[in-house]
Design a protein around this nucleic acid. Structure first.
Lengths: 139, 139
DNA sequence: CAATTATTTGGAATGTGTCTAATTTGTTTT
DNA sequence: AAAACAAATTAGACACATTCCAAATAATTG
């Protein structure tokens, strides 16, 4: 699905597929994330959604992003100690993080081979593996 | 060097080796981190350092941890959106993160093979690679 | 010792994110 | 369609980690 294919109607379906009741605010927040195809943080989402006229409160933005994440519709990316980024790409993948600009770029997981992870202690399961390659412009 | 080998005198040398002027507070903070050999966050460091009598202010703890990190004496670990952990182990290594307890465990880098990282854009250099394996107890 | 520089400090300020109780919205029921 | 109920949203207060700042202290130099 190309970025230009994301419509508010698509979002309604997507929300339903994840067992989320589609409301105005939820549709707008989902649309903001998916149509931009970028890694946005909460206040960026809020700015986009309220660009024309104020529509959605801060509390709803945070509630909704957390809800989307719990339902597996988006992913949290924790690279910056000061804020969480949300990633509409839920396919397994990793990230370049430009420490100078804060920019995040996806790394396709197909390219990557990761071997030699030690065995987990009994009773533990892996929830996910995050690989973050921190990069910066040559000094 | 075993954990029991970390003394305040060692810390003085270690600070000097990293071009840091050793002061009372800096020695105590370094000692707290290295003698514990654990992943501590700022307020844990502060609690340890001020356990007997209040010696070091919050501002100094934060300043000092940032200084140590800039000088490459310790490493930041960003896994929890709410706080930064500091890691006295600067050898390349990765982490298990227990999302239920917040516990961090080292993974030796020698065991790990990572291949297929895409080429960096020109003018960019890798600053570091962080691999975080998020684990949880079986439900 | 006086002068200068480096370090530490308390407390105010910032910014992200959560909580709460009240309202609004939407859906059933009758 | 009104009444009853549940779900979602809201404003604003709150919590917390971290940073900022200007003043005080400590250390170093001439």
């Amino acid at each position: 699905m190309k970025a230009c294919d994301y419509t508010r109607d698509n979002m309604t379906d997507l929300l339903r597929q994840h067992g989320i009741n589609p409301t105005h605010q939820r549709i707008e927040i989902a649309y903001a994330l998916f149509s931009h195809q970028e890694h946005l943080c909460a206040d960026q989402v809020m700015a986009i959604v309220n660009a024309k006229h104020s529509e959605t409160s801060k509390a709803t933005v945070y509630n909704t992003l957390n809800l989307f994440q719990e339902k597996g519709m988006i992913r949290e990316v924790i690279v910056d100690p000061s804020k969480v980024f949300y990633d509409p790409n839920t396919h397994p993948h990793h990230h370049f993080y430009n420490i100078a600009t804060g920019e995040l770029t996806d790394i396709d997981v197909d390219d990557i081979g990761l071997t030699g992870l030690p065995q987990l202690p009994p009773g533990m399961v892996t929830e996910g593996v995050d690989i973050i390659v921190r990069v910066r412009p040559t000094a």
